[in-house]
Design a protein around this nucleic acid. Structure first.
Length: 651
RNA sequence: GCCAGUGUAGCUCAGGGGUAGAGCAGCUGUUUUGUAAACAGCCGGUCGUCGGUUCAAAUCCGGCCACUGGCUCCA
């Protein structure tokens, strides 16, 4: 390496030499004026930096524009500062907490003291932001000592910043200033405020300082900003589109479920259509599990508190369980999980190594006390049904069983056309909440990883995400509009066998401890159905649609033929209805379309004469006339093969 | 639980100190229809709930309940 020159490698793989301490801006200028104009920041060896920061080492460089993630990050980071400046102008007494960029925009946590801050105030701040952005204030970096930084914030009485600075290491601390606003900040920032052309403050929320319930609650203002008004409009449109898929809206329209205040918040009632959908899903999984050697069991909804004391759940999760009730001289509790019941079933007989693995499955309904503010349609409820199963096996069988479970889970999600990301959740070594022997943990974590490697899976390891009794494999699925959901988990458990004194007789005629795998591909039926609704936007695959076909007679004269078709469809196991209302065919079609019925079978003179049906597919329109028997076969086949609807197919 | 917002007919929503309106849905009748809304009439609400202010409250104020978006939490 030369004293005066450094070598920088661009994203396309080309390398060039530059004078040492050249800035990102200058590098951009050597490529094109346009790039230099659009540059927001620069990423050197993975670290995002200001454009005017000198580069003094060899490495990978990318010039960040709005098109790159790092560029957006910089853009939103600066937008957060700009919003803070606007707030400061309007509320000089406001104290600022933290204000980072996030996945879609940015937020800032602000203490407004006793002043109330609501929707009306947001608009004023929005206007102010644009006004300030137009002043084209530069973001200037300042370096100060920790001592000076602390005394600055002591002086203006901002306990949040002093709290933050106290946590920083000794040495230089950086501040950024734009206009009249100075903020403790690591950076980087835009050169100036002018690229920020469109801003929308989207949400107001209470947020505890440092996420601690015992700390003061600050007002969090969420926003998003763009370099063009058009991009903001597009974003807002996209948000609107996502809202159209909202399972709470579609769940109501399609008659899937209801929440009734007299029954209680978070306790969904499954309506006929929803029940059909759920039972179909359950049947699907039940059949798969039967093939894979699971045995189904049923356990009651309450149990003696001692059961959960034995399992260790009770003290850990006391706050999220319903209070125990007194029954005779004992205490009973609504069951918050199924596992202890299954463990007792395992213990019911003496198990030989020849019996293992024992795989006990149950669609088990559990009750958990979720905080009221957390309840959300079907996706977060207080009573829900897990597609639970527990596999009791020997240590030697563990890896094979994990593999089977992963295969089952992958099969399930591929059926719905949902891509899956895999995450291995390990314990955090410094946390004491985890139960059991360290040695077991190490072993389980190692074995999970080995299986994942053997199967050639791509995965991410996350520490501190394990459950209290063992490491997990989490499946994170992506739905049709790219949102991520954590669904099924697979957990290895060396703790419960000890607590419940589970044993089997080995080939050596001695007692041994089995290992348990907990798993639930859907997670909960409620949550999974909510995700399915949003994934398909209510346009379900034929096999899941509550009503698969509606027979629409052109006029009353053809009601008899229509009814005959419906009866035949039903006897073939298909779900069909006839629309005999005295309406025009257009109206019948429209109603069927808005109810998202996959097939509309239109029958009139021609069809009756030739024993055919004229078929219209939801969202696709007329697909032609078929002999009735042939079309019935087509529907049956599509149901059995679980085809995705045309709207969800990738090809 | 906390912060912000919302609550008017089955649904979507307008109105707003003098006691309530539309469209759709539903019902009845007419219409008998060929690929996304036939026509007419009728029915339908203690304006979430309880309390306060007022001659008068759905409207203003407060408590509560529910819902929405966040925060915290999530076996």
């Amino acid at each position: 390496m030369s004293e005066e020159f450094i070598t920088l490698t661009f994203p396309d793989g080309t390398s060039r030499q530059f004078p040492k301490n050249i800035t990102g801006k200058e590098v951009a200028e050597t490529i094109s004026q346009g790039l230099a104009r659009n540059a927001l920041s620069v990423t050197i060896n993975g670290t995002i930096m200001d454009l005017d920061q000198p580069v003094d080492e060899d490495g990978k460089i990318s010039i960040n524009t709005w098109e790159s993630e790092d560029g957006q990050y910089t853009f939103w980071h600066s937008s957060a500062h700009l919003m803070a400046e606007a707030v400061q102008e309007l509320y000089p007494d406001a104290k600022f907490g933290i204000g980072p960029p996030i996945e879609n925009g940015f937020y800032y946590d602000i203490d407004f003291g006793n002043e109330s801050f609501g929707q009306a105030q947001l608009e004023k701040v929005e206007k102010k932001i644009i006004e300030l952005a137009r002043q084209k204030s530069t973001f200037q970096k300042k370096e100060v000592t920790k001592k000076d930084a602390l005394s600055h914030y002591h002086e203006i009485g901002n306990e949040y910043k002093t709290d933050l600075i106290s946590g920083l290491e000794e040495g230089t601390i950086t501040f950024y200033q734009q206009g009249n606003f100075t903020d403790l900040c690591r950076g980087p920032h835009l050169p100036d405020t002018s690229p920020i052309k469109a801003v929308k403050l989207t949400k107001l929320a209470g947020a505890y300082w440092r996420g601690d319930v015992n700390s003061k609650q600050l007002t969090r203002i969420y926003g998003i900003s763009f370099p063009k008004q058009k991009l903001l409009d597009e974003y807002l449109l996209q948000v609107e589109e996502a809202q159209k898929r909202d399972h709470k809206k579609l769940g109501k329209e399609l008659g899937i479920y209801m929440i009734d205040s007299m029954v209680g918040p978070g306790l969904p009632l499954w309506l006929p259509n929803g029940t059909l959908l759920r039972r179909t899903l359950e049947q699907f999984l039940r059949e798969e599990q039967k093939q894979r050697g699971y045995q189904e069991v049923i356990t009651p909804h309450i149990a003696n508190l001692n059961l959960y004391k034995t399992s260790g759940h009770y003290p850990y999760y006391k706050d999220s369980q319903y209070n125990p009730m007194e029954v005779d001289d004992d205490e009973y509790m609504l069951k918050p999980m199924n596992c202890p019941h299954h463990h007792r079933i395992y213990s019911n007989e003496l198990r030989s190594y020849r019996d293992l693995p024992v795989r006990l499955a149950e669609f088990g309904t559990v009750y958990r006390y979720e905080q009221s503010g957390e309840l959300n349609g079907l996706s977060r409820v207080r009573g829900f049904t897990q597609d639970d199963a527990h596999i009791y096996c020997t240590h030697d069988q563990l890896k094979g069983e994990i593999k089977n479970v992963i295969e089952l889970t992958q099969f399930v999600f591929s059926t719905f056309g949902m891509p899956v990301d895999i995450r291995l959740s390990y314990r955090d070594e410094n946390d004491e909440k985890y139960g059991g022997d360290m040695e077991y943990w190490e072993r389980a974590q190692k074995e999970i990883k080995e299986v994942a490697d053997d199967m050639g899976l791509e995965y991410k390891i996350v520490e501190g995400e394990a459950s209290f009794y063992g490491p997990k494999i989490d499946f994170i699925i992506r739905d049709a509009i790219g949102r991520k959901w954590q669904l099924g988990t697979v957990q290895v458990d060396y703790v419960m066998p000890e607590r419940f004194d589970l044993t089997y007789i080995g080939s050596d005629n001695d007692k041994h401890r089995p290992v348990i795998i907990h798993r639930a591909p859907f997670g909960s039926m409620e949550r999974f159905v909510s995700i399915l609704i949003e994934h398909f936007a209510g346009d379900f695959p034929l096999w899941l649609a509550p009503v698969q076909a509606k027979v629409l007679p052109i006029s009353d004269d053809f009601n008899t033929y229509a009814e005959k078709c419906t009866v035949k469809l039903k006897s073939a196991g298909l779900r069909a209805e006839t629309d005999t209302r005295s309406e025009k065919i257009d109206a019948k079609i429209r109603d069927a379309e808005t109810s998202k019925i996959p097939y509309m079978l239109i029958v009139g003179e021609r069809e009756r004469e030739q024993n055919t049906v004229s078929v219209r597919r939801h969202k696709s329109g007329d697909i032609g006339t078929f002999p009735f028997a042939e079309f019935m076969d087509k529907m049956t086949k599509e149901t059995i093969t679980r085809d995705l609807p045309p709207s969800a197919r990738k090809d």
